[in-house]
């Protein structure tokens, strides 16, 4: 009796697994060619894509995008790796780390850049109470960044290195962006790496008496530095060259429209980023270069900074991480 039940149960479980596998593969196979699933970590420069979707520009180009908002760069890479999404959007560091650890993905478009003197969109900011006045002052202090292996960690490492310090000279804590301002004000951290809208909230907080000690991801921003990337798996890129070009063209059109129309830009910021209308008035797209094309040299600068600060062992070749697209 018991033996029979054992067999029946095992059989049941196995056939269940088999059915599930078959179902999963049929669902995957029935997906349409023009359908493009885009996993993204919500940031300023992603607005044109959401705006284009709203306006129907993707549909006009024969593309049916599905937007999947996720919680961070690594999650975007995970969405691509698990086949949940076709195109990913995040800062360039997660796809670089992903490729170095065996996820076959390449970056094909960049949406935003930073450059001297004032087009900088990441900041290191300290609370007045911490007594920090400049980069050298963070020695021995409690500093925060939003995630391991992200742009903010790179930023801290790079700016510390420029002042002759390393990450071992400070006490780092990983803290999500939304919690950083409160932590600064309550004295739980002394300084943090912030992006907008968090930075503008922090810098407008008079009780905090904030001191901005650095701006820009790398200390050397004489040349534009790519700040984010659209990426996809090697296989998908190889099979969907046409769709990639169309996505690029749609994005290009939407970017131009938003850059030329202040009202549309503010409306999109309120609608998609849930900014208050007042906050949207100060909103700008972080665009330096008109072209979205990525070259190996763009990636090489980030790789070199990562190697110099010990985040990755070298040597690495930037071109390996890029699939160039002409649109």
């Amino acid at each position: 009796m018991a033996k029979f039940i054992r067999r029946a149960v095992l059989g049941g479980v196995l056939s269940g697994v088999a059915i599930a596998t078959v179902l999963a593969s049929t669902i995957a196979a029935s997906a349409e060619d023009t359908k493009v699933r885009i996993a993204y970590f919500l940031a300023d420069s992603m607005l044109p894509a959401l705006y284009a979707q709203e306006k129907g520009y993707f549909a006009a180009a024969g593309i049916a995008p599905e937007f999947i908002a996720v919680q961070g760069g690594p999650a975007v890479v995970a969405a691509i790796a698990s086949g949940e999404a076709d195109i990913g959007y995040s800062s360039p560091v997660p796809p670089i780390n992903g490729r170095l650890n065996g996820v076959p993905i390449k970056m094909f478009l960049q949406l935003s850049q930073e450059v001297d003197p004032d087009k900088k969109y990441t900041w290191l900011v300290a609370s007045g109470a911490s007594g920090i006045k400049d980069m050298a002052g963070v020695k021995g202090k409690k500093i925060a960044f939003n995630a391991n292996g992200g742009l903010c960690e790179l930023m801290w490492c790079d700016h510390l290195a420029a002042t002759g310090l390393t990450i071992d000279d400070v006490r780092p804590v990983v803290l999500p962006f939304p919690e950083q301002e409160a932590a600064l004000e309550q004295g739980n951290i002394d300084a943090t790496c912030a992006i907008n809208p968090f930075y503008s909230s922090i810098s407008g907080n008079t009780a905090l008496a904030p001191v901005t000690i650095a701006a820009g991801t790398l200390h050397d921003l004489t040349q534009p530095l790519m700040n984010d990337a659209l990426f996809a798996s090697d296989d998908w890129l190889a099979a969907n060259g046409e769709a990639v070009v169309k996505v690029a063209q749609v994005m290009d059109k939407a970017r131009h429209e938003l850059l030329g129309n202040r009202a549309a830009l503010e409306g999109a910021a309120v609608q998609f980023m849930e900014l208050t209308p007042e906050a949207a008035k100060a909103f700008n797209l972080p665009i330096v270069k008109e072209s979205m094309a990525i070259t190996g040299a763009d990636v090489q600068r980030i790789l070199d900074a990562m190697i110099a600060t010990g985040m990755q062992p070298g040597p690495l070749n930037g071109a390996d991480f890029v699939a160039e697209v002409k649109y």
Binding site: A39, V70, A75, A78, A79, S82, E84
Partner: peptide
Amino acid sequence: AVFMLGLG
């Protein structure tokens, strides 16, 4: 698990 099972 997200890497193996996706986000769904």
